[in-house]
Design a protein around this nucleic acid. Sequence first.
DNA 1: GTATCCCAGATGATATACGATCCTGCGACC
DNA 2: GGTCGCAGGATCGTATATCATCTGGGATAC
Lengths: 233, 233
Amino acid sequence: MTVPTTSTTVSKSQRAYTFLRERIEDGRFVPGYRLVLAQLAGELDMSVVPVREAIRRLEAEGMVTFERNVGAQVALIKETEYQHTMETLALVEGYATALSAPHLTGAQLDAAREVNERMRRCLADFDPHRFTELNLEFHAVLFEPCPNPHVLDLVHRGWRRMTVLRDSSFAFVPGRAQESVAEHDRILGLVADLQAGRATATDVELAARRHRTATLDAVLARQASRRPHPSEK
Amino acid sequence: MTVPTTSTTVSKSQRAYTFLRERIEDGRFVPGYRLVLAQLAGELDMSVVPVREAIRRLEAEGMVTFERNVGAQVALIKETEYQHTMETLALVEGYATALSAPHLTGAQLDAAREVNERMRRCLADFDPHRFTELNLEFHAVLFEPCPNPHVLDLVHRGWRRMTVLRDSSFAFVPGRAQESVAEHDRILGLVADLQAGRATATDVELAARRHRTATLDAVLARQASRRPHPSEK
DNA sequence: GTATCCCAGATGATATACGATCCTGCGACC
DNA sequence: GGTCGCAGGATCGTATATCATCTGGGATAC
């Protein structure tokens, strides 16, 4: 008989990978948190081999740093690296937007507008967590018809790395929320213009890119204002 | 004292990774070549564990596909995937060029011009291999002062994936070589213009992007002409 | 003749065990 | 008092062994 206990089709290394990624993304494992192979293996009721594999995979994605004979920890991301990651994300998001724009259906555009309206209403009783969720949803709708999965993959990697930083010092800039919603409107307008032949793909791309670089600039400006004396450690 | 026997500091998994990547990149392991853990472990005189890790790392980079309980093989890349990869490479290369442009010193610009001249001379007695090498060198010089290592990392990943295809059907298009050299000239001219305030970063970026998409289009066109009846397997 | 089932070989996945390396703290010596 | 050196523990790195799974071929039933 051998009832296969419902779902044996997922490997242990996969389980370990999912386990770790979940905790890193939702902030339970903050940057700098040490990942000890033997300890994790015990928690997950498996040997160290699959755990090791999972950690190496996360390392390849930039979520974890791993040093030989020393150990692994959730990646600690410095300000310059954050800046570089966000610049790259701006690049690929902008491109993804331009690629998707001509393929967006009326229904998809309406859905995106609707999400953005929810974001606007969310501005009143402001909840950063909910706002971030809606923001992700907005872009997910926008990128639905993107014909280049490679670019989307890069977008998702960028997003994931960003979430590693949730609880670090590079957090949300509340003042940006309103501008974000307005910029979304503008991007949606440009998409409609593009479909009507009144705007070029480059217009859409650069607008979408600037949308994220503006957020980045705001974060960096706040960081700078928080340490008036750069001489501090 | 402790002469550390020159270099014992390299792990076996690292050695296996280098070994495999070399063979994939220089074409000894062609796309589709099966990578059997036990066999490779025998060749490398190590156990399967480090080999497995190396293969998983290559999988994360897209050089290898790995299926559970079935095995690994050098990635077989379809035409659409090739197209998507190259589009992405065009995007990041264009951006990397624009980012580097304002920081290129006179010496670096001269070096780039010199490499391009060698490419031009190479057109006479044409050797695809040498031309490709020079092409890589040209871009390496161009990206030297790029301030965003993330973007450069994406460029290098794209290049590496491209080399996987060397011996597959997506090979070199000889007719493109001349245009390539001319486009390099044009890009270098735009960089100089940018530094003199006569061109914008976007001009440089889009020109560099078009440089690669033009190559892509040429490859795809040749592919299309090679199979007049798309019904063939 | 064809379809199905089953078995054996090949191969990957994981567990366990041992060795190598690095970090830490303590003590001795300058 | 400071610095060097030396255990000892913690942790990773790899080898070996065993289990699980897939694949392909051949026998058998229809």
